[in-house]
Simulated assay, not measured.
Amino acid sequence: MTTTNADNNAQFVQEWREWRAGWEQFLTAPFGWLAATALNWVDAEPRQYPSLPGLWWQEGKKLFVDPQGQTMSYEGESFTEVRGLDLSEAPDDVRITVGDLQVGVTYRDQYLVVTYDPQAPARNDFRGVPVYEPEPRFVLKGRFEPYEETKSVSLDSVETDSHVYDSPGIVRFSYGDEEYALSLTSSVNGMAAVFTDATSGVTTYGACRSLLIPEPDGDGTVVLDFNRALNLPCAFNYLPVCPVAPPENRLPFAIEAGEQTPYETSK
Score class of each variant (00 low, 15 high):
M1I: 11
T3P: 00
N5F: 10
N5K: 03
A6I: 10
A6Y: 01
N8Y: 08
A10E: 09
Q11N: 15
Q14E: 14
W16K: 08
W16Q: 04
W19H: 04
R20F: 11
W23I: 12
Q25C: 00
F31W: 14
F31N: 11
G32C: 07
G32I: 10
L34Q: 03
L34A: 01
A38S: 09
V42N: 03
D43C: 06
A44G: 10
E45Y: 08
L52Y: 05
L52M: 13
P53S: 14
P53V: 13
E59A: 11
E59M: 01
G60D: 04
F64Q: 01
V65M: 11
Q70N: 08
T71V: 15
M72V: 14
G76V: 06
S78N: 12
E81F: 06
A90L: 06
D93Y: 15
V94S: 00
I96P: 00
I96S: 01
T97E: 11
V98N: 10
G99F: 12
D100S: 15
V105S: 01
Y107E: 04
Y107Q: 00
Q110I: 02
T115H: 04
D117L: 02
D117W: 03
A122Q: 05
R123Y: 08
D125W: 05
F126H: 03
G128W: 07
V129T: 09
V129L: 08
Y132G: 09
E133N: 03
E133T: 11
P136G: 01
P136L: 03
R137D: 08
F138L: 07
V139T: 15
L140N: 01
K141E: 15
F144M: 13
F144D: 13
E145W: 12
P146Y: 13
E148K: 14
E148P: 10
S152I: 13
V153F: 08
S157Y: 03
V158G: 01
V158L: 07
D161L: 05
D161N: 09
S162Q: 12
S162W: 06
V164N: 04
P168Q: 15
E178T: 10
A181Y: 08
G190W: 12
D197W: 04
A198N: 04
S200W: 12
G201H: 06
G201D: 12
V202C: 00
T203P: 07
T204W: 04
A207G: 05
C208D: 02
S210R: 09
L212A: 05
I213M: 13
P216M: 06
D217N: 10
T221P: 09
V222D: 08
D225I: 08
D225E: 06
A229Q: 04
L230M: 12
L230H: 10
L232A: 08
P233G: 04
P240C: 13
C242M: 02
P243K: 02
V244S: 14
A245I: 10
P247W: 15
P247G: 13
E248M: 12
R250S: 06
L251V: 03
P252T: 00
P252G: 02
A254N: 02
I255D: 12
A257S: 06
Q260I: 05
T261V: 09
P262K: 02
P262W: 13
E264I: 06
E264Q: 01
S266T: 05
S266D: 11
K267L: 12
